[in-house]
């Protein structure tokens, strides 16, 4: 049996120097991630609050958090998560 994260909706804060194009590409490079969409919710002088929707067949949350840190993006909250369970039938 394996439980996989299929969808993550994250609220994060990033400096304006980091482009959402680069950030979304960096997240999409993670194994198990298929789609990434980023919306800029709020723009400040130095920062931008973003809402990220990450979808995939097996998203590694720790890896996403690592890529965000690598791109100077602070994770504020996990607003939504979808997981699914897969039972592999045992061969008798």
């Amino acid at each position: 049996m394996s439980i996989d994260i299929k969808k993550l909706v994250l609220d994060a804060l990033k400096p304006r120097e980091i482009s959402i194009a680069e950030l979304s590409k960096a997240i999409c490079k993670i194994e198990g991630v298929d789609n990434v969409s980023i919306n800029v919710v709020e723009t400040d002088i130095k920062t931008e609050t973003i809402r990220m929707i990450i979808q995939g067949n097996s998203i590694c949350y720790e890896e996403v958090a690592k890529v965000l840190a690598e791109n100077s993006t602070a994770l504020k909250s996990v607003d939504e998560i979808a997981v699914s369970k897969k039972i592999t039938p045992k061969l008798v």
């Binding site: 120097e17 130095k46 920062t47």
Partner: peptide, 17 residues
């Protein structure tokens, strides 16, 4: 330092640094 203050996070291992 300004960026660290604005996002309230250390960015020593990040691409900006």
């Amino acid at each position: 330092k300004e960026i660290e203050e604005s996002i309230m996070m250390e960015i020593k291992d990040s691409i900006i640094y």
